[in-house]
Design a binder for these strands. Structure first.
Lengths: 149, 149
DNA sequence: ACTATATAGTTCAATATTGAACTATTGAAT
DNA sequence: ATTCAATAGTTCAATATTGAACTATATAGT
């Protein structure tokens, strides 16, 4: 096997590990989330609380790297549960703006607590240094993939 | 914010990056794969070629960390395209065994070539040292999540 | 002003996935 | 031998996702 092939294998392996970790972690978190709330939905509530303000669906789709269609779906489900409010954008008749509701804030708190317990297990088992080492490398990889989309 | 909260945030951020990378890389690869073949299907063909021999569906499901239902689906699609052969396990009447066909081998070669070009771009932009640093850390994380499933 | 292009959001079909229910077979304990 | 729990595989409903088609509005170039 050539050197280049070996290198390619290395990169494939990294993506493979990443895929499995994503699946395992998503499932782990989903299992403790209040019934009916997906990890994607929780992440969205979290995003709205942490960053605050009103967000256009298109901006949220870009932030989460999903298609507009997927974001429409997520937002409709959250809206149906009264966890967010969707209002027309006063400055652009095409657009809408998404805000979290009080009920959404409470739900997000519940989710933070629920996932916190799971996360505590993981924190105990994975050295924080490992995480601190990986984050900048992952970030660079993510940005690179994103730029060359 | 408490120290523990900050740490939890760090871990959440890692999982978030991992989720986005998974989505971007999967989409990138899927786009260049011969029509009708998903990344999961290609991975399975690759697995059969690299490791060789006949595999029980349940063993494949464990190897790829997906449910038996998901594996049934993938195998049925590959079988329908004649890329694998599924035969009864002679030693266990409950079981089946999966082998790659000649056509499957050829398809796998095509996929390796197609994805190789995409991967070459990534190899050029991401230092191999980054990858070599991440792999053992990712592997440890994956194993830890898997053990505590 | 007009036109063409870009952007915002929705809908839809196709696909992948989970988790649970189900059937069939195995293997172990008594 | 019988019984019972474990395992192998399938099916199904629910959900999440993509990509493409579609409508509506905005913006830029002429």
């Amino acid at each position: 096997m050539s050197k280049a092939d070996e290198q390619t294998r290395l990169y494939f392996r990294m993506f493979n590990e990443i895929g499995i970790i994503n699946q395992l972690s998503t499932n782990k978190l989903a299992r403790v989330l209040p019934h009916g709330l997906s990890v994607a939905q929780f992440s969205l509530l979290n995003h709205l609380v942490r960053l605050g303000g009103a967000w256009a669906p298109s901006r949220l789709a870009r932030a989460f790297q999903v298609t507009k269609g997927a974001m429409t779906n997520t937002l409709q489900r959250l809206d149906a549960q009264g966890l967010i409010r969707i209002v027309p954008d006063p400055t652009d008749a095409r657009g809408k703006l998404v805000e979290i509701t009080e009920s959404g804030r409470r739900m997000r708190e519940r989710c933070v607590r629920a996932t916190g317990e799971v996360m505590a297990d993981i924190v105990r088992l994975i050295p924080a240094d490992d995480v601190r080492t990986m984050i900048p490398l992952l970030e660079h990889l993510r940005k690179t993939l994103d730029d060359n989309r």
